[in-house]
């Protein structure tokens, strides 16, 4: 970890991320300070400029922009992190199995990975986003809660987002599994599951962390694009992506609405990418010289 200190960009990214997370986490406090919440309509002040009551102004129905940005940040960051975790878990299982078992299992899993990589991602996500849960046989009540609708986004993005982690973990597994300590464990009669989880997994954590960090940025971009297109986070729950889709409708009357959500998506994604790049240099020096 100390190596990371030599990457000023990564340190800057880490500080910026801490700031963004702290800001998003303080949404409740700011709501109490202003005496309103992110969904309170101020019909007397639609599209208002910054004022004491609304530090960043209001949107087209008079909701406080700052509060919506903070609440939207909670949604976008949470979806990004949780999806990256789920995707990394799937990718790790696939990569470990493919790398350790080799042969037909490897061929099958890697063809599957290549297949998913070769798909036109966003068009596919749009179809997945439009799928009616009732037709899959899931009870519709389940999907009316806000948490479930977020879970749905996590699932569909994770479904296509695991490939990078899978490939990197497979590559690392291939080099680890031929080392003596693994051979020794196998000779002592350890079962494959034991070898994979106890001996190999701890040694492939570095590429896993790097790939997961680098994928968060991409996932946040995908979530915001889906929400922008109306298939991700559903209003009235704010997310940076769906705030921009109402900004598109208001671009002639209130171009300023388009500024903040976009800047925040950009800064968040940039931070994760810079951090991932720094981690790659630090944790995975051989793979880092790109």
């Amino acid at each position: 970890m100390r190596g990371l200190l030599r990457h000023p960009a990564a340190i800057f990214a880490l500080a910026l991320l801490a700031l963004l997370v702290a800001a998003a986490a303080s949404a409740g406090l700011v709501e109490r300070a202003l005496g309103i919440d992110a969904e309170t309509l101020d019909l007397a002040a639609q599209l208002a400029g910054p004022s004491a009551a609304h530090p960043l102004g209001t949107d087209e129905v008079g909701r406080d922009l700052l509060l919506r940005l903070l609440r939207g940040g909670q949604v976008s960051l949470a979806v990004g992190l949780v999806t990256a975790l789920v995707a990394a878990a799937v990718g790790t299982v696939v990569g470990l199995a493919a790398g350790y078992f080799g042969g037909a299992a490897d061929a099958l899993l890697m063809r599957l990975t290549d297949g998913v990589i070769a798909l036109p991602l966003l068009p596919l996500l749009i179809i997945l986003g439009a799928v009616d849960p009732a037709k899959v046989g899931l009870p519709p009540e389940l999907f009316h809660s806000e948490l479930a609708s977020l879970g749905r986004i996590v699932v569909i993005i994770a479904l296509v987002g695991w490939t990078t982690v899978a490939r990197l973990v497979r590559a690392a597994t291939l080099t680890v599994k031929v080392q003596d300590f693994v051979r020794a464990a196998e000779a002592l009669g350890a079962r494959p599951l034991h070898v994979m989880t106890v001996h190999i997994l701890p040694n492939v954590v570095s590429p896993m962390i790097v790939a997961a960090t680098l994928s968060i940025g991409n996932i946040i971009l995908l979530e915001s694009a889906l929400s922008f297109l109306g298939l991700g986070v559903q209003p009235p729950m704010p997310s940076w992506g769906n705030m921009l889709s109402s900004a598109l409708d208001q671009m002639y009357t209130a171009p300023a609405l388009a500024v903040w959500p976009g800047v925040l998506i950009f800064l968040t994604v940039l931070s994760f990418n810079l951090l991932g790049d720094g981690l790659q240099d630090t944790l995975d020096p051989r793979g880092g010289e790109r």
């Binding site: 694009a225 922008f228 921009l244 671009m251 388009a258 959500p261 976009g262 994604v269």
Partner: peptide
């Protein structure tokens, strides 16, 4: 850094900003 910035830009927002600057303003 410029490359990282370009990678991190949401393309729909970029489009929106370009429209606001070059088409609206």
């Amino acid at each position: 850094l410029a490359a990282f910035a370009a990678i991190s830009l949401p393309v729909f927002w970029l489009g929106l900003v370009l429209i606001i600057i070059f088409a609206v303003d």
